[in-house]
Amino acid sequence: MAKILTGWAKKWSKKNSWAGPLVFQPELHEMGQKNILGKSYNTKENKMTGNKQLFAVIKDLCNHKSCREFIAKKLCQHFITDEPSQEMIDPIIQAWVKSDGFLPEIHKATMKVAFEYGNKHKKFLMPEPWLIQNAKMLNFKHYWGPDRYVFKPGKIPPKRERNIQWILEDLGHPVFKPSQPNGFIDNEEEWTSPELMIRRMVYANQFQTYLKNIRRENQSTYDDEFFENIIYKNFSNPENALKTVFSANSTQNRFVMFANMPEVLKT
């Protein structure tokens, strides 16, 4: 595989040393036949140019049986439980085979499975989905959404755009910097250490400070009615959740209770 990847590189130029499109440079490509998972590419009988080899391999890898199984398992792990059973995985694989890898069909199958088994297994959320879920429910806009980002290559993004990055770093989930190339580990044990739980309480404790950064027209009055509204709208067992949130008196503490309830911490 490494041999097939040779020759693909960023195009360097004096003007743009920061980022650029990936291009294929034939002079850097390793010649000869390559064998991947029992299949040969660029054989004497079937010559291929270097860039075509890569697309041929990607196509074959995507259609490999293990690829379907791997992705289906990952989807179940993300939405349902750390150790999904074969019954959860199978419908997703079937949808994949039937639709020949059409993503909307795979997503539909995943959602169906997630609703079916979600109540039995409550998955503890990673900080990023937890944060977004909180922001959506509480209608918080203390960091910018993608609609307001201005991406200028070579320029350091302004402070307001990077705010969300720092919050996630504090929550132990620095999105652009997983320590391993296979990304963050999507199991509960990874995210339930004491310090990471403390980070969530600390973050929720700052909600009121973040309110100061929100434009006035986006703010609400955070009274009893506000909490009642969002809880009746979003929860399957609202009485219980309301009791938990209203066990605290001040608005600041109600935010802490809300964000750290089991119903919000888990799917």
Partner: peptide, 18 residues
């Protein structure tokens, strides 16, 4: 962490909820 924890009473209340 850079910022402060909620007061211990609130942590106790969370414990009750759990």
């Amino acid at each position: 962490a850079h910022n402060t924890m909620p007061r211990i009473e609130i942590v106790k209340k969370l414990r009750t909820a759990y």
